[in-house]
Design a protein around this nucleic acid. Structure first.
Lengths: 200, 200
DNA sequence: TGACAGACCACACATTTGTGTGGTATATAT
DNA sequence: ATATATACCACACAAATGTGTGGTCTGTCA
C-alpha cells in the first residue's frame, strides 16, 4: 500500500504559490496562478482551488477578485522543530513540533491603534531577559496587574519599563537588576508589555 | 497662516481604510473604498488615490484589481516613543522617535523557506537574555561567524542554541550561563539566530 | 469492467473592477 | 478675476477576473 499524501505535488505547488503571493501582499488571481504553473485553462486552476478548499486549506469568496484566503491550517507558518535527525542532510521537517504563525506571532489581530513600541535603553530589566536595544511592544492600558511588566510614566516625564509590584497595598515599580532601586515615586501606567523582540 | 496638514481628513480616512484592509489581507477595490467612505462615484475614489500617490503614500499597478500598495512611508508602523509629556492625557505622539515597521520588524522579506523557529527550553542562554519559552527564529546556514548565536545539531541528535566561539582555531559552543560547560564535541551549525521573540 | 479522482484544455459568459471624460460646487491663493 | 485644489457625481467603456459546461487521457480502486 502506498502512502497517500495529503496533497499531490501539484496541489502543493499551487498552495505554495498562493502562500508566496499572500506573503508578498496580494493574493493571486486564477489566471495568475495558471500562468505561474503553466496551466492554459482557468478551469484547471479552479479544479485545484476546489481540491484545496475541500481539504480545508483555502477559503474563497464568490465573484471577488483575488479573494483567496489561507485557512489557519495552511497559513504561513514557521515550523518549530525539535530534535533533528542527523542522518538527513536537511532539516527533518517530520519532526516538527508545531508552527508559529508568521502573522499573529507578534502582532496578530491587535488593533494597531493601541500598540506602540519602546526601544529599550539600559540594563535595568536585564534579569527579566530584556536587553539594551530590544524592542518592547506595549499595549496601551491605564492599569495592570501585580507583577506585570509595564511601561510607566514617571514624574520627570520619562517613560520606563519596569515590573509592577504591590507591597502592602500600594503599587511601586521594580527593576530586574539588583543595581537599581525600586521606584516608589508617583507614576502612571501607560501600557503593558506584550512582546519583546530582539534582532541580531 | 494656517497649518497646512500633510493629509486632509478625508485623505487620511481613505489611507486608513487601505491600511486596515491591507492588514486584514486583501487590499480593497476602488468600489469597496467608495462604499466604505460613502462615495457614490468611482471617480471620487480615484481622485483620492491620485492624491495619495502624489504624496508618495501609495503605489498602484495599472489595470490590476486591488493592486494598491502602501509605500514605506505609509505602511503600517508602530511608533517608537521616547519621552512622554505628562501634561497630555494621551500619548504624545509628537515625541515619536521613529517607527517599527510592523511587517518587517521580524520576518520582513526573509524567504520563509530558510527560516524556522525553536522554542527555547531551559536556561542555558539566560545571560544572553534568551529565556525559557522564548521563540528563537533561525535562518538556515551551514556556518556562522565567531560569537554568533547559532542553532547547532549535536551528536545525540539534539538541537541546541549556543554561542559559537573559537579558541585556538577550533570552534566550540558556549552557553550563556555559568552553570553550563562549553561543548567541545562534534556539532554541526544548522542556522544562525536572527530574532528572538517573547510573548507575555 | 466500471467508477472515480487527478490532470488537464477550450471557450463562452457574467461580474467585477479599473479607466476616462465631463460635470458641479466651494474655498483659497495670486 | 482666474487659477488651483478639494470634494464630489454620472456614466460609458474596456480590461481583468470569476463561473460554468463539456470535453480528453491516465491511472487506481474494487
Amino acid at each position: 500500500m502506498k502512502e497517500k499524501p495529503f496533497l499531490t505535488p501539484k496541489q502543493e505547488q499551487v498552495l505554495n504559490f498562493i502562500r508566496k503571493r499572500v506573503g508578498e501582499r496580494l493574493p493571486p488571481t486564477i489566471r495568475e496562478i495558471g500562468e505561474e504553473l503553466g496551466f492554459k485553462s482557468t478551469g484547471t486552476v479552479r479544479d485545484y482551488l476546489k481540491a484545496l478548499m475541500q481539504k480545508g486549506l483555502v477559503k474563497r469568496m464568490n465573484n471577488k477578485s483575488r479573494a483567496i484566503e489561507l485557512t489557519e491550517r495552511a497559513s504561513i507558518k514557521i515550523p518549530i522543530i525539535g530534535t533533528i535527525n542527523a542522518g538527513k542532510p536537511n532539516l527533518a521537517y517530520e519532526e516538527i513540533q508545531g508552527y508559529v504563525d508568521a502573522d499573529d506571532l507578534f502582532l496578530g489581530r491587535l488593533g494597531f491603534d493601541d500598540v506602540f513600541a519602546l526601544r529599550i535603553k539600559g540594563d535595568s530589566m536585564i534579569d527579566a531577559g530584556i536587553l539594551n536595544g530590544d524592542i518592547a511592544v506595549i499595549k496601551k492600558r491605564p492599569n495592570a496587574d501585580n507583577n506585570d511588566i509595564v511601561a510607566a510614566l514617571l514624574d520627570n516625564n520619562e517613560v520606563t519599563l519596569k515590573r509592577l509590584s504591590s507591597k502592602s497595598g500600594k503599587f511601586h515599580l521594580e527593576a530586574a537588576n539588583a543595581n537599581y532601586a525600586p521606584i516608589f515615586e508617583e507614576f502612571k501606567v501607560i501600557g503593558k508589555l506584550i512582546t519583546v523582540i530582539r534582532k541580531y
